[in-house]
Computed example of a mutant assay.
Amino acid sequence: MTLTAIDLFCGAGGLSAGLEMSGFRVLAGVDLFDAAGKTFEATHPHAKFIGKPIEDVKLEELFDATGLQPGELTVLAGGPPCQAYSVYNHKRGMHDARATLFRQYLRIVEGLKPEWIVMENVRGIYSIGGGEAVKAIKAELGALGYVVKEKLLRAEDFGVPQERRRVVFIGNRVNAPVRHPEPTHGPGLVPFTTIKDAIGDLPKLQNGEDLGSAGYANPPMGDFQRRVRGNLVKVSNHSAPRLGKINVERIKHIPPGGSWRDIPFDLLPAGMKRAKRSDHTKRYGRMTWDGLACTVLTKCDIHWGAYLHPEQGRAISVREAARLQSFPDWFEFVGSKTEQYVQVGNAVPPLLGEAIGRTIREIIEEKQSASMAAE
């Protein structure tokens, strides 16, 4: 059985990596971010990358790239850019042009006629227009013959060492059940993957330092590190942003689990001197080894979140951010350091993608077994 996938809005390929980890073969990816496209090509050499806005992608290009005919693709995946839906964007709304990009996804669905669809987005999509976006997506996919369900999934429930909430739409047109993956980690299950589990084996790094390709600090500790390291003996993208002199001085005062509240008043940024102690709970936050990371964004900016290393006097490196997103170490990010952080932050965590792909695969296999038994 060959399970195939195309990833629209693929970015660097986090969802693609997860689908492949669950047994799918990703045949093509579409995105307009050039640096992410180079990463996708390097990490998915068997897939065709189409670098252009989705509205310019013709169905013929996808058929030519994959060798498939309408109705033959197993899964069409992708998450339209989330900025219009994000709770961090207070101007969000259905009038935002980016909020209508899902219609381009629907155009591709109508043309390719995949058996299954997967759409991923931020939880803010529930609130815009009183749920208008969610209703529109389900209604329009329903008009194309797809039974669709959506659910808010927590990445940490699937082994990702990070608090991350994403709305995942799963549907099919082949009269199969639709269900979402069940948690594998948490109370009563496998313990959550902690920050120590995720990055505790990486070499020490100074503020602003780039180690290039460097050996690991320790042998792998635990299943997560063994899995992300595989057979590698060196790690790449272990490069930290350079904090300015004033920030270096500020973070000296912040203990593990601490935040801007631990910075002496005279060192605080002017705006934060007027802040309430209950405000901005994660700003200038320092991680704890035994905790989960806050949501990894496109900038691991210490002014906006808890992105300080648990022990070292710096913000987390690109590789540490990638580990917190559950990317394997062989996944090397291309482009400037800024572009690398964007690729990491925009991605679907591969372990979450794997759980989604595994669930769809199980349903397909169950349906095939039932069909064979009935013959």
Score class of each variant (00 low, 15 high):
K234T: 15
R242K: 14
P264K: 01
S239H: 15
G257K: 11
V233A: 03
D262L: 02
G257L: 07
V235L: 00
R227F: 03
V233N: 04
P264A: 09
S236Y: 08
G258R: 01
G244V: 10
L268T: 06
L243W: 13
H253R: 08
R229A: 09
I246E: 13
R261Y: 09
R250F: 04
L267S: 13
R227M: 01
I251A: 00
R242M: 12
E249L: 12
D262H: 15
E249V: 00
S259L: 05
E249K: 12
L243P: 08
H238C: 03
G257E: 10
D262Y: 11
R226N: 11
G271S: 11
I263P: 03
S239L: 10
G230T: 06
V228E: 08
H238M: 06
V235N: 05
R250L: 03
R242C: 10
S239F: 14
N231Q: 13
L243C: 06
P241V: 06
F265N: 10
N247D: 13
V248K: 09
A270L: 09
I251R: 00
R261Q: 14
G258C: 05
H253C: 07
I254E: 04
F265V: 09
V228T: 15
G258N: 03
S236C: 13
R227Q: 02
H238R: 02
S239G: 00
L268R: 15
I263C: 04
V228W: 13
S239K: 10
S259P: 01
A240N: 04
L232I: 07
H253E: 12
D262Q: 14
P264G: 06
G271I: 00
I263F: 02
V233E: 11
F265W: 15
E249M: 08
P264Q: 09
I246R: 14
N231F: 03
H238A: 04
L268K: 14
P264F: 13
P255H: 05
R227Y: 01
I263V: 15
I251D: 09
L268G: 02
V228A: 05
R261I: 14
I246K: 14
N237E: 00
N247C: 03
L243F: 12
K234C: 02
P241I: 06
F265I: 07
D266M: 02
Q225A: 02
I246T: 15
L243D: 07
L232E: 03
N237Y: 08
N237A: 04
K245A: 04
K252L: 13
R227A: 03
L232P: 07
A270N: 05
G230P: 08
N237W: 07
V248W: 01
R227I: 02
G258A: 01
H253L: 08
I251K: 00
G230Q: 03
Q225Y: 06
R250W: 09
H253D: 11
P256F: 10
G244T: 09
A270R: 13
N231V: 06
Q225R: 07
Q225C: 01
K234H: 13
Q225I: 03
N231R: 13
